[in-house]
Design a protein around this nucleic acid. Structure first.
Length: 348
DNA sequence: TAGACGTGGCT
DNA sequence: TAGCCAAGTCT
């Protein structure tokens, strides 16, 4: 009781003014919650504004092409969020007449919505007392109560959810949920938390036992795989190139890229043009030059992509169907977008 | 269920 | 710098 009252009091004085805090429209709250998954407010804010002005209702979003949605999502990462968002918008329009489901139990059935997001929407929009547990909540609770259970273990997930649920203010669950998250983001920060001015400092276990830096506990570290990418950037005399959509599982599903030859190490020009993949894909009369002498290492959470862009000039090539002046309409990974910007800069 | 899934900021 | 972290979800 004291815990939640203190947090709510802190929140009323310190909360950030954010556009999605001015509404309880579940469509807008949904958009903001999906965008902010594993994403900082500073990074997601401009995307939220762009989406809500381009797609003011769920009907507008449902009407759009997936490729348009992905283009607008470009640069935010975790692109399955955009695909699931679009998929669910169509379901809401077609099956629910555009009306957003109003209970945790129904909300969590939507693609792309898990325990956290269902709890957030149900509590903020429909006043249902379901506790959110995001990275902030894990940190605040593990420190305040001195809990050492790893937050990414199945035991920890259960334990922290139950604890948060026991602490929620049933009369204003949405405010409580946002309060504990904002408190974690602004005050009980991962590094250098503001313990000196903390309204909970007199009863914080981690502060008393000097465990602030040890909590929360997280087990297992991720392995990073190295990959070697050679993108073949075709340029024909009539200003065309080749782009193809990434399909199936793996990174960047639904985004576009130049023809790609992946190798198990960096390779030179001779190795490239004598490779089977290259011979099978391109005609003889080509002029090839390496765009970036130094490899570009694009870092994803689980992969480091050692990348070379090769400029492949061909007089004419039937496979090249994309006009250069339309290239910026395709959704592409940041790695490709950065290349296009450099290319444009060089030629201007 | 552990691993995959993006990008960018901070130390 | 290399690693951690950020309003998680899916398979």
């Amino acid at each position: 009781m004291k815990f939640s009252n203190t947090l709510i009091y802190w929140y009323l004085q310190n909360n950030r003014t954010l556009p999605w805090r001015k509404t309880k429209n579940p469509y807008f709250i949904w958009l903001s919650e999906i965008m902010l998954q594993q994403t900082r407010v500073a990074q997601g804010l401009s995307y939220y504004l762009k989406f809500t002005s381009t797609f003011p209702t769920v009907f507008d979003l449902a009407k759009a092409d997936e490729s348009t949605v992905l283009k607008m999502w470009q640069g935010l990462g975790y692109y399955s969020r955009a695909r699931n968002l679009h998929f669910s918008s169509k379901q809401i329009v077609n099956e629910f007449k555009g009306e957003f489901p109003s209970t945790y139990k129904e909300i969590i059935k939507l693609k792309g919505i898990g325990d956290y997001t269902a709890s957030a929407i149900a509590s903020i929009c429909f006043n249902e007392p379901t506790a959110v547990v995001d990275g902030n909540v894990y940190r605040v609770l593990s420190r305040y109560f001195g809990i050492k259970t790893p937050i990414n273990s199945s035991q920890g997930i259960k334990e922290f959810k139950a604890l948060a649920q026991s602490l929620i203010d049933n009369t204003q669950p949405g405010t409580f949920n946002q309060a504990i998250m904002d408190f974690g983001a602004l005050h009980c920060k991962p590094q250098n938390p503001l313990c000196e001015t903390c309204p909970l400092s007199d009863s914080c276990v981690a502060l008393e036992k000097k465990l602030i830096k040890e909590l929360p506990v997280k087990e297992k570290k991720i392995k990073v795989r190295k990959r070697y990418f050679n993108f073949l950037v075709v340029k024909t005399d009539d200003d065309k190139t080749i782009l193809s959509e990434r399909k199936g599982k793996g990174i960047w599903q639904g985004l576009y890229q130049f023809p790609l030859i992946e190798t198990d190490r960096n390779i030179n020009k001779d190795e490239l043009i004598s490779s089977e993949e290259f011979i099978n894909s391109f005609p003889n009369k080509t002029s090839i030059s390496l765009f970036n002498e130094k490899e570009i290492i694009h870092k994803l959470s689980h992969q480091h992509l050692h990348t070379h862009f090769w400029i492949v000039e061909i007089k004419s090539f039937a496979e090249a169907t994309v006009n250069w002046n339309t290239i910026n309409t395709f959704p592409v990974p940041v790695l490709i977008a950065n290349f296009l910007e450099k290319l444009n800069f060089k030629s201007n």
